[in-house]
Design a binder for these strands. Sequence first.
DNA 1: AGTATTTGACCAGG
DNA 2: CCTGGTCAAATACT
Length: 329
Amino acid sequence: MATSSWVASGSSVPVDRERVIRELTRGRKIADELRLRLRETGVDGTAAAKVLPSQELVGKIMDSFTQSISILSGGGDSDEVSQVPAVTNSPGRKSEDSGESCKTPAPKDRRGCYKRRRTSETSIKDTPTLFEDGHAWRKYGQKVILNTKHPRNYYRCTHKFDQSCQATKQVQKIQDDPPLFRTTYHGHHTCKNLFKSSHQILVDPETQNSSIIWSFASRTADYKPNKAAVINSSPAVNAAIKQENKEVEHDHEQMKMKSSPPSDGDYIISAELTAFDRNATDPLGAFSSASDHGDVLSSDVYSCTASTHSMDVDMMGSVFDDFLELESL
DNA sequence: AGTATTTGACCAGG
DNA sequence: CCTGGTCAAATACT
């Protein structure tokens, strides 16, 4: 299982660890309860009776995480930590481009000329195996870290230069037996090019509701029911997507009858979120639970259909990024 | 030839 | 001064 945490790396406040742990544990319990509840919920409209409790649970989850963040950030309000690595443009400093941050170029080369990040949002995931997170990364460094057996690998987003995406990550093996890898993410992807999925954002002109539509393609040419996914859609957009998905689903079923199931590594996902309450949802948890089982979940808060052999956890990262993007609209 | 990785150098911060 | 993060030339790969 992957663990994930968000911390404000710039804060130097005393942290009440016990409180944080308590809050996080509580959040996990509630999330688990929600997961179970959603699992027993039907595919179709039978979810109605569960709607309110589910929403309450989601609210509790958010409260819990908010508390945790608040504690971590020093007990103040839960102001979000900076979304992007801070670009400190103090007067007298160099230009804003971190790539050209060396003011006085050395005669020979400019290696090591960079602006060290001060505060940025950091996400840590510990996983037993290396995994893809849906983004294209480019390795730019490797470093032996003091008192560790394995070197730390440094990656930046492939689209750092063409789309000014500032996301970076570090991967390090922190344990041998059983193997455990720690992936630390810095910043969020601002690039639009997801490695395995594409998405677009729609805004309904009437309601101003925004939606995100994903299209996930399978990895094999002969088996690719591309389906659309919607988040926070207006009824109009929703209806259109539902119709589209219905057709795709139909083709998909036909194909399943005739051909062999997809080989390992293929994935087909349809994710659909309606009446999405952006203030009270933990989309990542919701989708993660769906990916665990590959079956059908449904509620008023969200519904997620995932039929797949191995829907990679990495896709959740992409999904999560999309949520963040949506929330910033 | 174009792209990705490796690796030593360089620099900021503690 | 030490350490970790980044750069960029050299090298490997496709």
